[in-house]
């Protein structure tokens, strides 16, 4: 491995002109990840960005590292091959709600369960952007789009619940209106040993403007979102006086100082608690604050490490493979 280099953000900016719509949330995500990449201690040539198809999937062209813009939904498969062949690389998958959860849903869940140590960033704008505005697997039921003029009858996926159900060892959520938070979450995702999934609430200004507004807009987000911090109580609100408590497994929003509620009553976040994380993925605004941050992290065996260990074990037992010996193995006979 090469030694670490002190990078500036511009070192991760490629020569290609960025071509997202003006005002698109993707710009903030790109910029924040580029900044995060300066802080993860990986050299540029050891980073690989892989994407599928969709607006978000243009991402690798804009990052000055190794990159591949592949086919619709298949980025996790391609990234798996990159990482398994060379586990020293830092592999990033950039995908969207259509690419990652619809056409590529199968690959996403398998990448999560296998725990092939890569970072999957899911840009969730609840719409198909590049094909110009059809409902996606995360669109709210009833949404009017070009392909659902009378309202979509599809029920929506909740990416966090899906990920935890699939056996993900790391799930986090962040939002395009909070670049610093994106950076922090991305660095944590990178440091996680195993596959991480980070859902980013992203605004599509053209086809689904304001889909995440209430919990991402600077004016309202303090009251409708909840920043999860491991070991800290789940307090939110502009006045930092609201919190979550559990009433028989059922989350309830309370106000500190009312009805005898004190800070001590507030639920403390434990990112290693699967059941707590599962509950948190289901919270929706406006009834609840929408949580962001690291929901869940689990230490589990990492796929690539196990593959390498098996190879090492076998080499120790049987020696380096000898092809001529293999050809001569078993029943052979001499013809004179």
């Amino acid at each position: 491995m090469s030694e670490a280099v002190a990078y500036k953000k511009k070192d991760f900016v490629s020569s290609q002109e960025v071509r997202w719509c003006p005002g698109c949330g993707d710009y903030a995500i790109l910029s924040s990840i580029q900044t995060a990449m300066t802080k993860i201690g990986k050299r540029r040539e050891d980073i690989v960005c892989v994407s599928g198809i969709g607006c978000s999937s243009r991402f690798p062209y804009y990052v000055n590292s190794y990159g591949m813009h592949t086919i619709h939904g298949r980025a996790p498969g391609i990234a798996s091959g990159v990482k398994i062949h060379n586990p020293d690389l830092s592999v990033w998958v950039l995908t969207g709600d259509g690419d990652g959860l619809s056409i590529g849903g199968n690959h996403l869940i398998h990448a999560l369960r296998r725990n092939i140590s890569m970072n999957i960033v899911l840009f969730n704008n609840e719409i198909y952007g590049l094909t110009k505005g059809q409902y996606s697997p995360t669109s709210k039921q009833g949404i009017i789009t070009k392909s659902s003029p009378d309202g979509s009858v599809d029920r929506a996926f909740v990416p966090g619940s899906l990920a935890l159900g699939a056996g993900a060892t790391f799930f986090a959520r962040t939002m395009d209106t909070d670049p610093k938070h994106i950076q922090d979450v991305m660095i944590e995702a990178h440091e996680h040993q195993g596959t991480s999934l980070v859902e980013v609430f992203q605004n599509c200004i053209i086809f689904n403007d304001g889909a995440h507004k209430i919990y991402t807009d600077r004016a309202t987000r303090d009251d409708y979102s909840l920043k999860l911090v491991h070991g800290e109580p789940m307090i939110f609100g502009k006045d930092r006086n609201k919190g979550l408590i559990l009433n028989h497994f059922h989350p309830v929003v309370v106000t500190i100082g009312e009805n005898g509620v004190t800070e001590k009553n507030i639920l403390v976040h434990d990112k290693h608690d699967y059941n707590l994380a599962s509950m948190l993925t289901r919270l929706k605004a406006p009834e609840y604050p929408v949580p962001v941050g690291v929901f869940y992290q689990e230490r589990a065996a990492v796929y690539c490490q196990q593959v390498c260990a098996q190879i090492k074990d076998l080499k120790a037992k049987r020696g380096e493979g000898d092809m001529q010996a293999l050809l001569n193995s078993g029943d052979t006979w001499e013809v004179e």
Partner: peptide, 9 residues
């Protein structure tokens, strides 16, 4: 696709 990724790598 995994083979393509491995080839890239």
């Amino acid at each position: 696709c995994s083979a393509i990724g491995a080839s890239f790598a």
